[in-house]
Simulated scan of single mutants.
Amino acid sequence: MPDNHPPAGLARPAIRPSPRLARRQLLAAAVSLPWLGLGSARAQEGAIRIAQSTALTGPLGDLGSAMHQGAKAAFAGINARGGIHGKTIELVTQDDTYDVPKALANMTQFLADPGTFALFNCMGTPMIDAMLPKVVDSGIPFFAPFTGAQLSRTKSARNVFNIRASYADEAEKLVQHLSTIGIQRIGIVYQNNSFGKEVFTAAKQSMDRLKLPEALTVTVENNASDAGTAAAKLAGGNLEAIVIGLAGKPTLEFVKAFRAIKRGVTLYALSVMGTPATVKALGADATGMAISQVVPLPSNAVMPVVRDFQAAWKAAGATAEPSHLALEGYINARVFAEALQRAGRNATRAAFIDATWNLKKWDLGGFEIHATTPDRNASRFVELTLVGRDGRFLR
């Protein structure tokens, strides 16, 4: 190979671009490669480190991975534009495989590190339930936990900031829709755990308020061993629609069992059921299902926030199909950055927490954030989607 180095003792003269040219090159890098842009140039000014425990692998790894990738795309774009007050946002993520002991170990590690500014978008009702006591005692910001359960929405926990609409909000939306289109004969199947009971309670309260006839109800155990029995009972109930308060394996087993016995009854489920993996696993049995969503359709480019998300997703080099969960992760990251911006230069945790509660009727391009009290989520956005024949969601 030829030797391209100059002879010993002769140094090549340094060729420096003009200041104007250098800045133009830096801006070009920021546009084409967000993770190499102005954020990197200013990294020496410091970074805000936030930590996340989520499922990147395991039974719900597709959910956690999608939200994580959406958040990463948002932060990459923010850092490329100079970060927040000249500081980049660094997201440190540990995989807990949707396992409570692993999530607790991750949390303990994060809390022991004085450089951890906040916990961000940690996932799963059981994990969050286990984390909350230490998190609340520590005072660290616990931002956008991924659960619709009421357990994370408590009046005394001001450092816990929930964004996504609750399971109760979703169940109420489903029942309101059924009432609006004149459906009277409704069944409810719900998981025999705290999640399922929360969905059932909210649906029943909504039905009572709307003066709908009492629903035919059944439960399914977490291992789905009685899914077939539950499906048979509802199939014999002469129903027009069924509200499904199930997640994971019980959803798959119940829907498949019910469709095998009876068709023509519309099935209504919550956002936790509507993951690409679940829809794919159900195949044709998912077609025609109505599913509530807590963020807009990720292909609905009419909405500015969706257009921004699509641009960030593309710039980050993501190859997966953009999903509701990826958009939710993106929105969570954008809201975090807005609160950090409002907290001021060299923000403390206390200033950041104050800033989150000052997010009043803030419009993120068609998605409103309105913080009121810790027992209420900052978003009430819920819309219904249908699963099309190709497995895609339609409005």
Rank of each mutant, 00 (worst) to 15 (best):
L151R: 11
Q109W: 01
N106M: 10
M107Y: 00
K134G: 00
I140Y: 09
T88L: 09
T125I: 04
L119S: 03
T125W: 02
V135D: 01
A112K: 04
D129S: 13
Y98F: 15
F146A: 12
T147S: 13
A112F: 00
A157D: 11
P114N: 02
F142H: 09
A118D: 06
R81I: 10
V92H: 07
P114T: 05
F143H: 12
G77K: 00
S138R: 13
T116I: 14
I140H: 02
F143W: 08
R153L: 14
V100A: 06
I128E: 09
N162A: 13
P126H: 03
Q94G: 05
A76W: 12
D137S: 14
D137V: 05
S138F: 08
L104M: 06
G139K: 07
D137N: 09
G86C: 05
K87F: 00
H85D: 12
T154S: 04
A144P: 05
T125K: 04
V136A: 12
L132M: 14
V92L: 14
A76P: 05
K102D: 00
N159E: 04
M127Q: 15
D137M: 06
P133W: 10
A144Y: 09
G148D: 09
F161Y: 14
G139H: 10
P145D: 11
A105W: 11
V160K: 01
F143Y: 13
K134W: 00
N162D: 12
A130C: 10
T154R: 13
M131G: 07
R153C: 12
C122H: 09
D95Y: 02
V100M: 02
L151P: 02
I84F: 11
G83K: 09
R153I: 00
R81S: 15
